[in-house]
Design a protein around this nucleic acid. Structure first.
Length: 223
DNA sequence: CTGAGGATAGTCT
DNA sequence: GACTATCCTCAGA
């Protein structure tokens, strides 16, 4: 159990080194399936500042059909256009002067996506800390670096410029699969989505029960 | 640990 | 002008 979470000890070898970039076909499936399967994959960001990576431990599905909480529910606008594009692209949405990162999927040919809410920090922790530390005086704990969709984007330097970015090319920003096995279904929790007012009861949030990096209160997790 | 309140800026009506 | 898929701080248990 605990062994599935990486130790903080710095390693000479990169965690994301053996990763295989997820192909377009991965995203071109039922959105719930993609959301579940994204748990345990690695989010990787390569920029001029350096490389950061983290294991995805919490996601939310946003479906085009019968989901009023989905940004695509009211049709295509300038800001949500990426969701109407091909699967495997990034949809970066600005909110409250911060950003959220989604992976676009295909839900029977309509616009849908998976919001990445939290990761377990792996590579480039000091770089994440530098980016996140800019506002705060206090020393941030490891879990505070990436717990929550907007904190995660700040730690990974994801902003509007990466909207529409192709996540399947293995450059700048991508998601990869490790050789090691992921979590079993019993280790995955499901709940309503956080922060949404519409359709808040739909169980479209998936998270790793044992992970300390999952956002939201403990109450949103089963005992 | 939890919940409440305010900051903040881009987007749409 | 009114939202919002958030975060931070602070008070209280």
């Amino acid at each position: 159990m605990a062994a599935k979470h990486a130790q903080q000890k710095p390693s000479a070898r990169l965690y994301c080194a053996g990763c295989v970039v997820l192909p377009p076909a991965f995203y071109d499936r039922d959105t719930l399936r993609v959301a579940r399967d994204l748990l345990g994959t690695l989010l990787v960001r390569q920029s001029r500042e350096g490389l950061t990576s983290g294991r995805i431990v919490e996601v939310e599905a946003y479906l085009h059909e019968n989901d009023p909480a989905c940004h695509a529910a009211r049709g295509c606008t300038r800001s949500n256009r990426a969701m109407f594009g091909p699967p495997g692209r990034a949809y970066v949405y600005p909110i409250h002067s911060r950003y959220c990162l989604n992976a676009v999927t295909r839900e029977r040919g309509t616009a849908s996506a998976v919001l990445i809410r939290a990761v377990e920090p792996l590579d480039g922790i000091e770089l994440m800390r530098r980016r996140r530390q800019r506002q705060t005086q206090r020393q941030l704990t490891l879990r505070e670096l990436v717990r929550g969709p907007a904190r995660l984007c700040e730690a990974f330097a994801v902003d509007r410029r990466l909207d529409h970015w192709d996540l399947t090319r293995g450059q700048r920003l991508w998601i990869g699969r490790e050789a090691t096995a992921g979590w079993r279904d019993e280790e995955i929790g499901q709940s309503g989505r956080i922060g949404v007012t519409a359709a808040a009861d739909l169980p479209l949030r998936f998270f790793v029960i044992s992970s300390p990096y999952v956002s939201g209160s403990r109450r949103s997790r089963p005992a």
